[in-house]
Design a binder for these strands. Structure first.
Length: 267
DNA sequence: GACCAGGTATTGC
DNA sequence: GCAATACATGGT
């Protein structure tokens, strides 16, 4: 079995694109996607890469070395960011899970987002054995009133999650269709949801619909663009701008000293 | 206690 | 249009 290059579990699962994977004491990661449970480690990557579902989930068929080389050739700083986490891959997460997770991410911090998503799954997701839960379906959440979400402690975001669930469950928004729609149209449709603005829409496009040209612009990316790429715009990074974004986001978060003069106190 | 967290809706100009 | 502000909750 061939060794999978350009794939690192920590870089991929702890770079801020997903919230349900948990690192185990032995360094492996356990998670759930589309109702499937997986434990993945450096040792079993080759086997898992053979599996159609997981191979696609981890985007293992894509030539990230080539993408990284192209991005690196375009910009010296981008080359440094890409080299910082060359094993990072953009997951193929479920569209609804990505939409819902990033609605919950707004004005929130990553550890707390993880806790909210965990409680959401435990309270409203289907048990799939061994104490694991599937991500709750939009239909299940659509049937709730926002008040029913108070036990997951997501605060003012409860009404946003319910609105998203209702628009998806009713077919007002067809997430699958957005995979092939014009990017700007897909973005506008997502922004019909109460609580979905440009940033959450772009996260949904990139992480849930695998639209690799989408470029979510959060506070970190705004700082990074100002400081590291003055005068550049996301479009300059081309059709893989989303991957560039993830390299830059991860690099920035792991090296906050780059922005020391702009931030009073980090973390 | 103030301030912050992978933002967004609302309000006021 | 664009700048200010509230929003739930939990950590520093």
């Amino acid at each position: 079995m061939q060794k999978i290059l350009d794939f690192d579990l920590e870089q991929t699962l702890e770079c801020g694109q997903c919230f349900r994977w948990e690192r185990q004491p032995d360094g492996s990661y356990t998670g759930v996607a589309s109702g499937h449970i997986l434990n993945i480690s450096e040792e079993n990557i080759p086997q898992i890469a053979q599996d159609e579902f997981w191979g696609n989930y981890f985007d293992l068929k894509r030539d990230y070395a080539k993408i990284r080389a192209d991005l690196s050739a375009a910009d010296r700083t981008l080359a440094r960011a890409a080299q910082f986490a060359p094993g990072m891959r953009i997951l193929n997460q479920e569209p609804w899970e990505a939409l819902c997770s990033f609605i919950l991410s707004q004005n929130n911090n990553i550890p707390r987002i993880r806790g909210i998503v965990k409680r959401l799954c435990e309270q409203f997701g289907e048990p799939i054995g061994d104490g694991f839960f599937a991500f709750p379906t939009p239909e299940r959440i659509a049937a709730l009133e926002p008040e029913a979400l108070c036990e997951i402690r997501c605060g003012f975001r409860a009404k946003y999650v319910v609105d998203a669930a209702r628009k998806v469950a009713s077919g007002v928004i067809d997430l699958e269709r957005l995979k092939t729609a014009e990017l700007s149209d897909a973005r506008e449709q997502l922004m019909q949801i109460h609580g979905v603005g440009p940033k959450v829409a772009d996260c949904t496009l990139l992480y849930g619909l695998h639209r690799l040209e989408a470029f979510p612009m959060d506070v970190w990316m705004k700082r990074a663009m100002q400081t590291l790429f003055p005068g550049r715009s996301p479009e300059a990074f081309g059709c893989y701008a989303g991957i560039a974004q993830q390299y830059i986001f991860h690099y920035s978060r792991c090296n906050p000293e780059l922005f020391a003069q702009e931030r009073q106190h980090a973390g």
